[in-house]
Simulated assay, not measured.
Amino acid sequence: MNTLPIKKAWVGLVAGVAALSLVACTGNDSGDDTELRGGTSEADAGSNDEEGETVVIGFSAPAADHGWMGSITESAKRLAEQYDDIELRVAEGTNDVNLQISQVETFINEGVDAIVLLPFDGAAMTPVALQAMEAGIPVINVDREFDDPNAARVTVLGDNYGMGVSAGQYICSEVGDDKDAVVAEIAGIDSLPLTQDRSQGFEDALAECGLDVDNRVAADFTVEGGEEAATNLLQAAPEIDAIWNHDDDQGVGVLAAIENAGRDEFIMIGGAGSANAMREIQSGDSVLKATVIYPSTQAADGIKLARLLVQQKAMSDLVEVEVPRTVQLYAPVVTEDNVDEYIDSAFES
C-alpha cells in the first residue's frame, strides 16, 4: 500500500466497523427547529459539538431524480446549516460521470478540507477519489462504494443485504406458518449490485421459514416503472400472499397498479422508508403494511464525520480515538406499531 500524504495530523487509517447511525446530536447553531438527531449521545458529546475550526466540505451526489436521492442532498444541507463551523460547497447533482469527476477535481484544486461523495458510479469515480486522498483531502464515500478502499478515509453505507433480510423476516412472521404461501418480489434495477444484494438477503431470510420467491419482476426505481412491473406481476400471478417491493419511490406506481387491478388479498412491504409509504401504513386501509428503512440521511452522516475528522475529534460513544473506516447503517422494519418514530425524518416520494 502506498503511504498517502498527510494534510492534517488526524489522517491515520484505523481498522473498525461501526453499525451506528450518526445523523447527529444537537448542532452548535440552535436556531434550527428541524435538527437531525440521533447517534452520539448528547450527554457525552459536548466537546464534539462545540464550535471549532471552520471546516470546508465539498459535496457531490447524483441528480435528485427521485425522492430518496433528493433527501440525500437536502439532509446534508440541513445538517451543515446546524453548524456555524461548517462551510458546505454543494456541487449540482448530476448523473453525468464526467461532470461529477470534474466537480471533485474542482474541490481538489480549491483545497477543501474534506469531500463527501455519493458517486453516480463508484468504479468510475474511484480514480479521482484516489487523487483527492493523495492530495491529503479525506474522502467520505457514501452509499455506492469505490473499487479501491484506499479511495476513501471513511465509507458510510446502507445495508442492502440487510434490507432483504428484514423484508424476508417480516413476511415470514406474517405468512410463514403457511408453507404454500405465494411470495412475490418487485425488484429495482437488476444490473445493480444493490438490487442483487437486496434480493439475496430476501431469498436467504425466506429460506429460514421454508418459503421462496414464487414470482419476481424488476422495475427501475421510478413510479412509471413500478406501475408497469406490478401490472405484469399481477397478471402473471392470480393469487399472492405477500409482496416485497424494493423501493418506495417506485412503490407509488406499484400501489396504483394494485388499485387498478382491484387486488387486496395480500400484504405488502416496501423499501427505503418514504413518508407517503408510512402514511399508507398509518391509514390501516392499504395492502402496504410495512417498509424497510434505507436511510436517506447517509450523506448527512458523512458531513458529520468529515467535521469530526478535520477537527481531530472522535465518536463520543466509542473508546476509539479515531473515526472508524466503515459505518454501516441498520435496516429496521417500520410497521403501524412504530411508524410514529420514523415518519418525521422520512423523505417524500
Rank of each mutant, 00 (worst) to 15 (best):
K8W: 02
G31S: 14
D33M: 01
L36N: 04
L36D: 03
A45R: 00
G46I: 15
N48W: 03
E51M: 05
A61W: 00
D65V: 09
W68M: 12
W68Q: 06
S71I: 03
L79N: 12
D85Y: 02
I86F: 13
E87Y: 01
E87I: 01
R89P: 10
T94D: 00
D96N: 15
V97K: 01
Q100E: 12
I101F: 11
F107M: 15
G111M: 04
V112T: 09
I115A: 11
V116P: 06
T126P: 07
A129S: 13
A132S: 01
E134R: 15
A135C: 10
A135M: 10
A135N: 12
V139Q: 03
I140T: 07
F146L: 15
N150I: 05
A152M: 02
R153Y: 15
V154M: 13
V165K: 02
S166C: 01
I171W: 06
G176K: 04
D180H: 05
V182A: 05
A184Q: 07
A187R: 09
I189R: 11
D190N: 12
S191Y: 10
D197A: 10
E203F: 04
V213N: 10
V223C: 01
E224F: 05
I240C: 11
I240H: 06
D241N: 10
I243Q: 00
D249T: 14
V254Q: 10
A256G: 06
A257Q: 08
A261H: 05
M268I: 09
N276C: 03
D285I: 00
I303F: 08
K304C: 08
L305H: 01
A306C: 14
R307T: 14
L308D: 13
E320I: 01
P324F: 00
R325D: 10
A331S: 14
V339M: 02
D340W: 01
D340C: 07
I343W: 03
F347D: 07
